[in-house]
């Protein structure tokens, strides 16, 4: 554990909590892509199956359980409790495509051809692109509530901080995992436009609206 990973994990945790608070307080999931949330739930489920087979630390186990539980809770809020507020007609990204491509890539490019390793690799590839339905939805509506943009900023920063963690681990521990690193770079890259808008608009107290 190094400082980049710790701040990255805290940023990830903050993102999830911000999202739950937004939905719970406003009693609405308006502006949130249910498809991205479904993909994140699939990511956590496939990656954290090792919860039952591989103990790392109390910290690791606690975080995994929290991420799993909170993602299922988010899905419940969006598709059941507050489903009347879900903007289904704006959430039209073909997310099946992301799953298919991630499955194929995981079968072709992995560290070891075993069930757990392929599930882990699939979760890494899928996570890299899981935000696309959400970003697509914002592009379609042309705006996002400020709390939604805080959520996205925290969520995007998390993988960016992980890149710093991987650079650190490469130099200090000699550890380098290309699958995680390249996917993390793609994942962070997808947020570039959003980061620019966030810094130039939301941080100055304006709403996040896309230039026409």
């Amino acid at each position: 554990m190094n400082v980049f990973r710790l701040i990255g994990d805290m940023s990830h945790l903050a993102a999830i909590i911000i999202l739950l608070i937004k939905i719970w307080r406003s009693r609405s999931c308006s502006g949130i892509s249910g498809k991205s949330q479904l993909l994140f739930t699939a990511v956590f489920t496939c990656r954290y199956l090792d919860l039952f087979t591989n103990f790392v630390s109390i910290y690791n186990t606690t975080m995994k359980i929290f991420f799993l539980a909170s993602s299922y809770a988010t899905i419940y809020l969006i598709f059941m409790k507050f489903k009347a507020t879900y903007n289904r007609n704006h959430d039209t990204f073909r997310f099946e495509l992301l799953i298919v491509v991630s499955v194929i890539l995981a079968l072709l490019i992995n560290h070891e051809f075993s069930a757990t390793e392929i599930l882990w690799t699939f979760s890494i590839y899928l996570e890299a692109v899981a935000i696309l339905p959400q970003l697509f939805m914002i592009t379609k509506t042309g705006e996002a509530e400020s709390i939604t943009s805080h959520y996205l900023f925290a969520l995007g920063s998390y993988r960016g901080l992980y890149i710093l963690n991987w650079i650190y681990r490469y130099y200090v521990e000699g550890h380098l995992d290309w699958i995680a690193v390249l996917s993390g770079i793609v994942q962070t890259g997808l947020y570039c436009d959003f980061f620019y808008l966030y810094i130039t608009r939301v941080m100055k107290g304006k709403n996040l609206t896309l230039p026409a």
Binding site: R5, N54, M63, E112
Partner: peptide, 10 residues
Amino acid sequence: KDSSKSKDEL
């Protein structure tokens, strides 16, 4: 194996 070292990450 080396890839197992990534599994301590979230």
